[in-house]
Design a protein around this nucleic acid. Structure first.
Lengths: 188, 188
DNA sequence: AGCCATCTGTTGAAAATTCAACATCTTATA
DNA sequence: TATAAGATGTTGAATTTTCAACAGATGGCT
């Protein structure tokens, strides 16, 4: 992709996040963003329809980034401790952003988008193992998705109340009964 | 000025400084700069002839910025404590950069450029007070310029060994005998 | 010495961004 | 209520930046 596009989108998103932490969503104007990012106001409209589209795409980006850390490279969604650790390490790195998106300012959208994404991923995983259908159904998917997101949300909202090792090991323990059946490899 | 120009020059200069601290001047390639700043290589050549021109303009920029802090707004070069404090506060803010430019990597160019600039400013100051010619001549100019730069260089190279208040007050004390005659206001 | 990889500058066409100017819409304030 | 100030989107022409490709220079390695 054209480097200019990379850079301006990055700049817009980054200052959008900054302003989100500073003033909250409703007080942000497109002018603010353009001015602080040192970008022409019109250029913002070249990439995003408006504030809401910006928030939407922002959330989408961070959901995607989070999901990319769920697979340990090459769409390998094997449920091993490493995969979980990668996720939580990434959450820790961008902690303030995810804290923001999960609490006040994401307005709940973030949680929903993440939920959908994980649900989708799980469904895909299961579809590769049709023999599991007897054991795994929609109920299972929602149970696991909710459980995982609940842990994730708790860990972020409470400002990382325990070490990464602890959460991941505990998660592995909780998922142990399902792990064997869930292992799968997706190749598009 | 076109915002794109501002941004790319800023990006180039900033990563140039970073690389200067990391590898030193000779190991820097235009590729390095372009790649790290996420800018097309050709764009660098649109603004600078080569590495050397880049170093040259970089030094020029920082000399200018430093000089802008010598005047307390509107070309008022009155020699008061505030002016000095502004200079040293600015030096403190961008300490690592000036440390870099004054020591190894500026290769002495920075000192020379700063010397010329201060000498020029002093000459201008005196030319506005022709009645001072009896007391102030070239010898005075070089004496004062060298003295001031000496203090500045010592303060930076030794990592700010004393508080700003102390240097500036001491400087005011040392310059006291000349202060009265030196006061001047330049209006272009 | 020869070779390979990398860096250097330069080019022209394509694409992104800027700027200034619009009309319309909010919103605070006298 | 009227008015002024600022925000929103949109437009077209001007400008900058990108990209891909070039030829030549440099420097390390066998």
């Amino acid at each position: 992709m054209d480097r200019r596009i990379q850079r301006t989108r990055q700049a817009i998103m980054s200052t959008f996040i900054d302003l989100l932490t500073e003033k909250g969503f409703e007080k942000i104007t497109i002018n603010d963003i353009a001015e602080r990012a040192n970008i022409n106001r019109g250029t913002v409209y070249l990439h995003y329809d408006d504030k809401f589209d910006l928030l939407d795409k922002c959330i989408g980006d961070y959901v995607d980034q989070l999901l990319n850390h769920c697979s340990n490279g090459n769409n390998d969604f094997t449920l091993n401790p490493n995969a979980f650790e990668h996720v939580f390490e990434y959450l820790e790195k961008d902690f303030s952003i995810y804290h923001l998106l999960l609490s006040n300012e994401g307005v709940g959208f973030f949680r929903n988008r993440l939920y959908e994404a994980i649900e989708e991923t799980l469904s895909q995983l299961l579809s590769f193992r049709p023999e599991n259908n007897a054991f795994f159904n929609d109920t299972t998917i929602h149970f696991l998705t909710s459980g995982f997101i609940g842990v994730l949300e708790w860990w972020i909202s409470n400002s990382m109340p325990c070490a990464i090792k602890e959460v991941t090991e505990q998660l592995m323990f909780l998922l142990e009964p399902y792990t064997n059946q869930l292992v799968a490899q997706i190749n598009n």
